[in-house]
Amino acid sequence: MSARDLFTLTNRHFKTSVGITAAIFVVTAIVGFIVLPFAQPWVQFANVWDAICSAAGVPQRSAAAAAQAQDKRLSEVVLTSHTLSRPNQEAIGRGATLAQRCAICHGPTGISRADSPNLAGQYAAVIYKELHDFRSGARTNAVMSPFATGLTDQEMGDLALYYAFLPRLPAYHPTPQLPKPNIVIYGAPMRGIAPCGSCHGSLDNKVGSPWLEGQSEAYMKAQLRAFAGGDRRNDISQQMRNIARAMTPQEIDEAAAYYASQPPDIVKAVD
């Protein structure tokens, strides 16, 4: 008794089991790849082979639907958690020199008093992405766009690393007795809004999301409104536009006020 006695057509168990299995496969394949595709009156196939390819999931480009022309530029930046994750002193030094021209709005220590974003301690990937988007035109601003136009990739990386290196304004929320706003902690699941805190700090941070604690309230409100109105569109896959559109004006105020709250003495100290 060996495998040779089993794997032979004279063994009826072999013949029957292989025969039944093959028959079931052939029948189901015919039904799945030929009968059912043609049973869909709303799909037209040129021939049987076309139907089989469709059912098998052969990748094909649809000739009829040409890609829609994109009138506005989208962000071209691809970020991973390793983007600019290894700072070196030389790059930071170069960034510090370049940052001289940013200080007038963003503050000499990266803390702004002009309702421009605080850049000190911001994630390098975030600064890099925004600069890149300003240069490519994915994001536009009368003041920032001209600054970014002349920057090379390396200069943007150096600036990003320099600001990421500066000490961040510590998180400060002066009303601990009040619950954190629901929009920050829980989002609004029924409207498809993830908690702000799950990407922007307070709960967690996700690659490419800026740190918001201590940013200017007016700036954050303006950005949320710009996302909601479609004036700003450099968010990847419309993440922020979808969220901002679904937020109520009150939620925008709450979120901005929560993230903006910062200790007055620290703001004074950097003056």
Partner: peptide
């Protein structure tokens, strides 16, 4: 979406 409908049917039958 990356799996063809025909294969889904065959797997369903098995």
């Amino acid at each position: 979406p990356q799996v063809g409908a025909g294969f889904k049917f065959v797997h369903s039958a098995f």
